[in-house]
Design a protein around this nucleic acid. Structure first.
Ligand SMILES: [Zn+2]
Ligand SMILES: [Zn+2]
Ligand SMILES: [Zn+2]
Ligand SMILES: [Zn+2]
Lengths: 164, 164
DNA sequence: CGCATCATGTTATGTTATAACACACAACGT
DNA sequence: ACGTTGTGTGTTATAACATAACATGATGCG
């Protein structure tokens, strides 16, 4: 995971970062309380790291941060925390990058879709709308449980500028 | 990749397998000639293996087969051949499985969409139709170059039967 | 021939992910 | 208090996936 994993935009637009981290954490706390699952220190801190970074991070990148803070140094620690957060829907896994990113729309359940800039590494999350694919799957009798939708390309700021 | 990677259906329906392998190989030969690229023995055999298997295979599974036939024993051999075939569009990579599968629609260029049965491991390929996601991406100014669409779920034969 | 291009062979290593077992601790019924 | 169960953590070890880098051979061309 030697990418420049340190961007900021949610989507491709700026925003109040401190606020967005804080509210996402609060939301997660509430949801966990509701569901009767534990948002333990490692899990909480893992989520916080992903929210602060606001970019796709490899499991071992997360682990390095946890380790620096004395919260665990072995792969299973990171993978367990990430697995929990993914199960709860606070974090999504990005298959193309073997990486994880905090959910940008934690307010409601959804299946995510991502746009991944191959130049700057920025990842934007959209909610996936059910489309033709779901219909054709239903037609063939396939029962969809989970979908992965990831587009790779160039974000607005990384596209070659046209001459005026 | 310790799945039971030895299925048959293209999509979820039976078909004349020998014929489908033969025609796909012929098509690939023709395309390569057209493009002035070489379908070398390793590449050809790799494609043939994937076509025969007609299922998602890990790179090391393919490598094992190549090795058994004296066509190469080291990972780069398999990854290069697979890389070539993916570049040419004869094979697709399935991100969720870290696996490869021969294209089921080699006649024309397309971006694929997959349905992956979590019970039997069968993978069906559909052509991805451009949908709402592409539109919303265009709206935000993101320039899509490649898309990954993979659905996980239960294929028709693996769904629990309803009582009559 | 000298040189560039493409493909292959090989070594070594890097990166991602999980199995399996040991331990701590809280909740619960007896 | 005691054993039991469930859940989370700590740790070892290893599995599974992937590529960098360099050497060798074959082909085509000026
Ligand atoms: Zn989300
Ligand atoms: Zn960009
Ligand atoms: Zn295809
Ligand atoms: Zn099935």
């Amino acid at each position: 995971m030697m990418r420049k994993m340190s961007s900021y935009p949610i989507g491709f637009t700026a925003h109040d970062h401190a606020q967005c981290v804080k509210s996402a954490l609060a939301a997660a706390q509430a949801v966990c309380a509701n569901r009767g699952v534990q948002l333990t220190p490692v899990r909480l801190r893992t989520l916080e790291i992903l929210l602060e970074e606001h970019a796709a991070m490899g499991a071992y990148d997360v682990l390095a941060r946890l380790n620096a803070e004395g919260l665990g140094s072995k792969p299973p620690v990171a993978y367990r925390a990430l697995g929990f957060l993914v199960d709860q829907g606070f974090v999504h896994r990005i298959e193309q990058l073997n990486a994880f990113i905090a959910c940008a729309h934690p307010e409601d359940a959804h299946s995510p879709a991502f746009m991944i800039c191959r130049s700057c590494g920025t990842v934007a999350e959209a909610k996936a709308q059910s489309g033709k694919f779901a219909q054709s799957a239903a037609q063939t009798g396939f029962q969809i449980e989970q979908t992965v939708i990831e587009a790779e390309g160039l974000c607005p700021s990384c596209q070659p500028q046209v001459q005026s």
